[in-house]
């Protein structure tokens, strides 16, 4: 780890050993030896730069090559080992630091949303040539989680605590369900606790659950024909979509209250 000097490190191990003997005082004692908050503050420039870079890349789901590579390069520099291209997704990765002990996972997202272009001005301003934007703050999600993973790694090192911190580089949250493939692959099977966060307009750790969902593209195929000259020979795929939409509109009246169909 870059910022943990050897002297600090061995002092912390000593304090840590004493603290373990003292039982519940351990957290406080270790905090004295290595301040995790200071370890985050020391990285403020990195956090901002990585967040800004990913914001400018504005790469959409499963196409986050540069964003994923930037996070990986920061982690490699800090001594993390990296498995990349996991779960059949080129931009997915798992980075790990430490050994033995419990495994704490920190999730990181970095995909942008298509169909929006916006500068960093506080008024509506499009950026020429950019067709996606970090309107869900996943650039911050990536940079903030990166910072935490590195700080935790430094703390593990400085205190000599057995344990592993993992950063999960999880692509395509927006409509792509990237993490589902990572879960399906068993990548979380040995994780003790997974931590995540999200950008918002308030600070809250309230217990909030979310809805289960599924999406699909329904494709209707008919028979093309001249709409005026030979309409009897045609079968309109659009008629199929219209009839389907009408049925779904009627169905909305007859589903449980907390459902959403859109």
């Amino acid at each position: 780890m870059k910022t943990a000097s050897r002297a600090t490190s061995s002092f912390a191990v000593l304090v840590s050993a004493l603290a373990l003997a003292a039982g519940s005082a351990s957290v406080q004692a270790q905090t004295t030896a290595f301040d995790p908050i200071a370890a985050v503050e020391a990285q403020a420039d990195r956090t901002a730069q990585v967040a800004r870079d990913i914001w400018e890349f504005a790469e959409v789901g499963y196409q986050e090559e540069r964003s994923s590579a930037l996070l990986q390069s920061q982690l490699t520099e800090e001594g993390f080992s990296i498995r990349k291209g996991v779960a059949g997704i080129p931009t997915a990765f798992v980075a790990e630091y430490g050994s033995g002990g419990p495994v704490i996972a920190i999730l990181a997202e970095f995909d942008a949303l298509p169909g929006l272009s916006q500068s960093d001005d506080p008024v509506r301003t499009e950026v020429a040539g950019r067709h996606a934007a970090h309107a869900c703050g996943h650039n911050l999600f990536g940079a903030g989680s990166l910072t935490a993973a590195i700080a935790v790694g430094q703390w593990l090192e400085a205190t000599g605590t057995p344990g592993r911190v993992r950063l999960y580089g999880a692509p395509a949250e927006e409509g792509g369900s990237g993490k589902v493939y990572m879960v399906r692959e068993g990548l979380f099977d040995d994780v003790d606790v997974a931590l995540h966060w999200h950008a918002d307009d308030e600070n809250s750790a309230a217990a909030r659950t979310t809805l289960a969902n599924r999406s699909a593209k329904f494709r209707f195929r008919g028979q093309s024909a001249h709409a005026a000259g030979a309409p009897d020979r045609g079968r309109s795929a659009l008629d199929g979509v219209e009839a389907f939409n009408m049925m779904v509109n009627m169905m909305r009246e007859h589903v449980p209250q907390d459902s959403r169909i859109h």
Binding site: E173, K179, V183, D189, H196, A207, R260
Partner: peptide
């Protein structure tokens, strides 16, 4: 509370105990 959005963190939360937070970035 119940939020009406959905997230793939949901699947992670069935694989391991999971917890998060939200901060005022906006």
């Amino acid at each position: 509370s119940l939020g009406y959005g959905s997230t793939d963190v949901g699947d992670v939360s069935y694989a391991a105990p999971t917890v998060g937070l939200r901060t005022a970035t906006w």
